[in-house]
Amino acid sequence: MGWFQVVFLAVIQGLTEFLPISSSAHLILPAQLFGWEDQGLTFDVAVHVGTLAAVLIYFREDVYKIAVAWFASFAGKGFTKEAQLGWWIIIATIPVVIFGATLKDFIEGNLRSVLVIGAASIFFGLLLLWADKAGSRKEPLEVLGFKGAFAVGLAQVFALIPGTSRSGVTMTASLFLGQTRDSAARFSFLLSIPVILGAGLFKGKDLAEQGGDASLMAAGVGALLAAISAYLCIKLFLVFINRIGVMPFVIYRCVLGVCLIATAYWVPVQSI
């Protein structure tokens, strides 16, 4: 890869991993327009490490408290709200693990196309807007409950469809359940930790079996840029989400979806 491609893809991965706008849509459009080849497993693993580092660093205090409380609950030292949150994250992760393993081959063979990504970007963007309008936006994260966490986890399964956006669909479910925008975003970000970790380990396993396919310098720069852009994205998103709402992201998704569908007719359709 050239350095422009390295910088562009790393920054885009860092930003779109946590914004409700779909990373798949942003990775395929420039590839279609510029004729870029696949960035390879080494680079994929590197940017996953970068985004995981970003969310762990930003939520380091929350992660520490959740982990300590979760383990303490086994020792009979009380079932605190942090321990509850730890269980909710686990429960919400189970569906995507099961369906991801089951549907992986079907998704790879049938859904990774420009048309699917464009349509999903538009549809799930409008669904996010509906959830924001229909939900009460009054409930704090503490009242989500086990059923609510499982419902968000089921919604996360739809993120397996390229173009959906994992953060977008989990926020959509939380908003439908009456969560505040801030609570919906926070739970989505915390829920990303096991998902990104699992995806990184899965790709790392493939990398170990197939060998490296990119320079260590490119991978290192990619990981660093992905981490920086992801950290800034999380920080700014949590600051501004209650002020700006979801409408800017919905409009952006719809425009992007239309552009992707248009390129499917102007540029030869390829799978990613």
Score class of each variant (00 low, 15 high):
M1L: 12
G2H: 09
W3E: 00
F4E: 11
V7K: 10
F8P: 06
F8Q: 12
L9T: 15
A10W: 12
Q13T: 06
L15V: 15
L19C: 03
S23C: 12
A25Q: 08
A25W: 11
L27H: 09
Q32L: 14
F34G: 06
W36N: 01
Q39I: 05
Q39G: 03
G40Q: 08
L41K: 07
T42W: 00
T42D: 04
T42N: 05
F43P: 00
F43D: 02
V49M: 10
T51W: 13
T51K: 04
L52M: 04
V55A: 07
I57G: 08
Y58G: 11
E61M: 10
V63A: 14
V63Q: 00
Y64E: 10
W70V: 09
F71D: 08
F71S: 12
G76I: 12
G78M: 03
G78E: 00
G78P: 08
T80W: 14
T80H: 05
G86P: 04
W88Q: 10
I91Y: 06
A92N: 06
I94V: 15
I94G: 09
I98V: 15
G100L: 02
T102G: 11
D105I: 03
D105N: 14
F106Q: 09
E108C: 00
R112S: 04
S113W: 08
V114Y: 03
L115P: 02
L115R: 14
L115S: 12
V116K: 01
V116Q: 02
V116L: 02
I117E: 12
G118I: 06
A120Y: 01
A120H: 07
I122D: 07
G125L: 03
D132C: 03
D132W: 03
A134L: 04
K138S: 14
E139L: 14
F150M: 00
F150W: 01
V152H: 07
G153S: 07
G153N: 03
A155L: 02
Q156W: 06
V157C: 12
L160H: 10
S165V: 10
R166D: 07
R166N: 12
S167M: 12
S174Y: 05
F176L: 15
L177S: 13
Q179I: 00
S183A: 15
A185M: 05
S188L: 00
L191D: 00
S192Q: 02
S192V: 00
P194L: 12
I196N: 02
I196T: 06
A199V: 08
G200C: 05
L207H: 05
Q210F: 09
G211S: 08
G212C: 14
G212I: 15
S215C: 12
M217F: 13
A218H: 13
G220A: 10
V221F: 04
G222E: 09
A223P: 15
L224A: 15
L225Q: 08
S229Q: 05
S229H: 07
Y231T: 14
C233H: 05
K235F: 10
I241C: 07
G245Y: 07
V246C: 01
V250M: 00
I251F: 10
C259M: 15
C259E: 13
I261Q: 05
A262M: 14
A262L: 15
T263V: 15
A264R: 05
V267S: 10
P268D: 11
P268W: 04
S271H: 09
